Computed example of a mutant assay.
Amino acid sequence: MMKKFNKNVVLGMGLIMLLTSLSACSNSSSSSQKSSASESVTQLDKVANSTYKKAVKNLEDGDVKLAYQNLKKVKIKKTTPNKVRQLKSNVTSLYKAKVALENNNVTPAQKKLNTLASVSKPAALQKQIQVVKKEYKVVKLANIYYHETINYYHAEKYSDAKGSLDSLQALSSKYQAVAMLQKKTNKYTTLLNSKLKAESSSNATSATSSSSTSSANNSSYTNARNSKLVSSQYSKQTGSNISSATNSQVSAVASQLSDAEVISKFLAATGITQQEGDEYFTQYEGNNEYSIEIRNTSSNNSDISVMKGMYKFNTDTKVAQKQDAITGEYQQIN
């Protein structure tokens, strides 16, 4: 009886020791797994942070594509640092906007840029957003000028067509979409020069040859004499048509319609390129809004004034609109 009891005690103690040993092994294994998982997460975070730094450096170097490619490799996990998540998302939007612009897809680019409107950091990203926004402005302008050139030409508004063509050609060709549109309108240069030359010859035939003012002197007032704003202002002040005005009278009125500060703000807001020989006439319309007329004399004939555009510009909101020479309607350009 005693032997049987002792045997049971020994078996019981052995079982307890076995269970204790198994429990210890289990805890050790679990602890090891947790430690391994923790180390794995830490390693992923290190890789993500390292990639973040690389991407920021790419942006500092102006390479949005490389920043995008590097961040694309980051697999977003629950533990991924928030700054890495945000940078990946924002750079992806910026890169897609840039690609859209390169392919002349203005609307998709605008939508992507709109999602980045409130982004302010890191500074390198914010700087590149501004760079792409500038490209967006220029590409949008290029498309407006491109369609105007073709539409005005077919509507036989050759002066307006030449003005739009000159404006398109003045934009920076470093942008892929702009260069493409410039190339597509090259043929209109010869066509419009021919049309304007014919118009000039027709006007010269009907003009009197007894003018006491030299042609060279007249050319310096060509833009002012043909300006809609100057003509309207002269008529208001004198009750006469500007065609009967002397050069000094035209010059006096034109000087009243010039505001360098407004023009500076207008150019900054629109991205319009100011060409040599461009003349800007401004007229205040009230409520911080100005009418702005841009003219330039033809490169082939200084007696021909080319209309480069009639605009409305609000100095408060910085919104600019351009008039359609055919319909007379205005459309926002920025």
Rank of each mutant, 00 (worst) to 15 (best):
M2L: 02
K4G: 03
K7G: 10
G14E: 03
M17H: 01
M17D: 11
L18I: 14
L19V: 05
L22I: 10
S23C: 07
S30H: 15
S36P: 02
E39Q: 13
E39M: 10
E39A: 10
V41E: 09
T42A: 04
L44T: 05
V47F: 06
S50T: 14
K57W: 13
D63W: 09
K73M: 11
I76P: 03
P81F: 06
N82T: 10
K83W: 08
V84L: 11
L87S: 05
S93G: 10
K96S: 15
A97T: 10
A100C: 12
N104V: 03
N104F: 03
Q110A: 12
K111W: 04
L113F: 09
S120R: 10
L125M: 05
L125D: 01
Q126H: 13
V138R: 09
V139W: 03
A142V: 12
Y152L: 05
Y153G: 12
H154G: 02
V178W: 11
A179T: 08
L181Q: 14
L181Y: 14
N186I: 02
T190W: 00
T190V: 07
N193F: 05
S194W: 00
L196P: 13
S200D: 03
S201R: 12
A204P: 05
S214M: 08
T222M: 04
S227Q: 05
S232I: 09
S232R: 14
S235A: 12
T238F: 08
T246A: 03
Q256R: 08
L257W: 04
S258L: 02
D259N: 15
I263A: 01
K265V: 00
F266M: 06
G277N: 02
E289L: 06
I294P: 12
I294G: 12
S302I: 01
G309C: 03
Y311V: 00
F313R: 07
K318F: 14
T327Q: 02
